[in-house]
Write a protein that binds this DNA or RNA. Structure first.
Lengths: 255, 255
DNA sequence: GTGTGTGAAGCATTTCACAGCC
DNA sequence: GGCTGTGAAATGCTTCACACAC
């Protein structure tokens, strides 16, 4: 439906809730898989299960994008893939630089999920001269001295920091000064950036700590410890069909 | 699905809100840094800045743990480190196995943040016989066939999956069957697990997509594209002093 | 009948703002 | 006087439940 009204409805100018934005990539991944299997349409129930959320949430999320479904039928897979891609800005190609080519940086460089989703690794950068010129994932590593030039020549606006914590802020400052306005930070440090620059962080040890917290309460049954503190015991968290944590948080990659 | 019951009345009594749990590791990291510099006390304002959140939120978070501060003064650094560590279950040692020793698995094995935080890499596991016996981060890789034995012999309850997406569910099933009850998943797939098992996921391409979404609206403006319509705004995001994207909810999940 | 789209209700989290203790 | 701890208000997110379109 589109044609007629397209008003961006309602949702007021602000747009789409952050929580919804964080789930769009999940829907997109599930839809892409369906698309590859040539499935023409899906119901909110099926898609929700594939994405690991519940259907009411999914329908609500989609309602912020517009009315892209057909009552009594479901959603057209291809059409939704396109709409979500567009909403996320993936119909354009984003050049990305990865700074810090250690184990993690190399893992990121090799991550296939980039290219397939509108991202292109424009350059790999490391401060170690010994790495300069050496190819990683087919791309030669360049020295940090070139950072500013690389950013400018390639029109890079998204940078990934995979350096040790001690170097992160400095790298961040240089990226920002060179024009980067979105940063994905893997270093365990809080980065400070000027207004207008977005930072998202992924911290492996934080995720593990959160798991440890819940793990601790499972075996500990008595609840008691101390005083009445824990809730009931065994079942700690919730219930729904959701799998994702996400609401936001962290994020990922495979290798 | 799930459910039958549901609603755990949740966090009632002493239960700590998920959003708070997700921030405790941040506070702990900031406090550890202060501790290393031998700083004896901090105010909520200072600590909040170091952790990248605002002070009201931090005080509220701490209020769920108890009254560990001193009015007019602030918090005792060492004491808080201890209390938070205890709350997170880090005063005990958690053996962890990493399955899938590709670039990412190797990066995780080498990640120093583990050992320093109550986690111990008990074993590295990979399906490639060519890797068996080869040391990574000083630990010899073991073959997948040994998975169940390793889990049991070491009393492992937390597993990290860093395999390709196609192998993830299978690995997950084996981990769970062998007794693992918390899983950190780096593979871009939704895992299904029985009730009582927590899964957290980290997905790099999702994080990048979220950045792309915001990036798009910055320069955006012209926008147009197609039919839809982006809102107008140039500056969409944010505001506060927080750095994390997080806002979101974190994640745990049962399944 | 079937499954979407969405007000309205229900919860959770954040922020405010100030009383209370040092 | 300074800074914590916390009710209460504000905001944001999720779930419910049902009218409506197909």
């Amino acid at each position: 439906m589109a044609t007629g009204r397209t008003h961006r409805p309602a949702t007021r100018s602000r747009g789409i809730p952050e929580a919804t934005v964080a789930r769009l990539p999940l829907y997109l991944r599930a839809l892409t898989a369906l698309s590859e299997r040539s499935v023409p349409t899906v119901s909110s129930e099926e898609l929700a299960a594939a994405a690991g959320v519940n259907s009411a949430k999914l329908r609500k999320d989609f309602s912020y994008l517009g009315s892209y479904g057909t009552r009594g039928v479901g959603y057209d897979v291809e059409y939704l893939v396109y709409q979500i891609s567009r909403e996320l800005g993936l119909t354009q190609d984003w050049p990305v630089v990865i700074v810090g080519i250690g184990n993690l940086g190399a893992a990121l460089a090799n991550y296939g999920g980039f290219a397939s989703r509108g991202f292109r690794v424009a350059a790999l950068i490391d401060a170690d001269p010994g790495l300069t010129g050496k190819p990683v994932a087919g791309i030669p590593v360049q020295h940090t001295d070139e950072l500013e030039k690389i950013i400018k020549d390639n029109g890079v606006s998204i940078g990934v920091i995979a350096t040790p914590a001690g170097a992160a802020q400095q790298v961040c400052d240089r990226l920002v000064a060179a024009g980067v306005t979105s940063i994905l930070n893997f270093a365990p440090t809080v980065l400070s950036v000027p207004d207008g620059v977005d930072v998202r962080k992924v911290d492996l040890s934080i995720e593990l700590q959160i798991l440890a917290f819940h793990e601790q309460r499972k075996s500990g049954e008595e609840t008691a410890a101390g005083d009445g503190a824990l809730p009931a015991a065994v079942t700690p968290r919730d219930d729904s069909t959701d799998q994702g944590p996400d609401g936001d948080v962290p994020a990922v990659m495979p290798a």
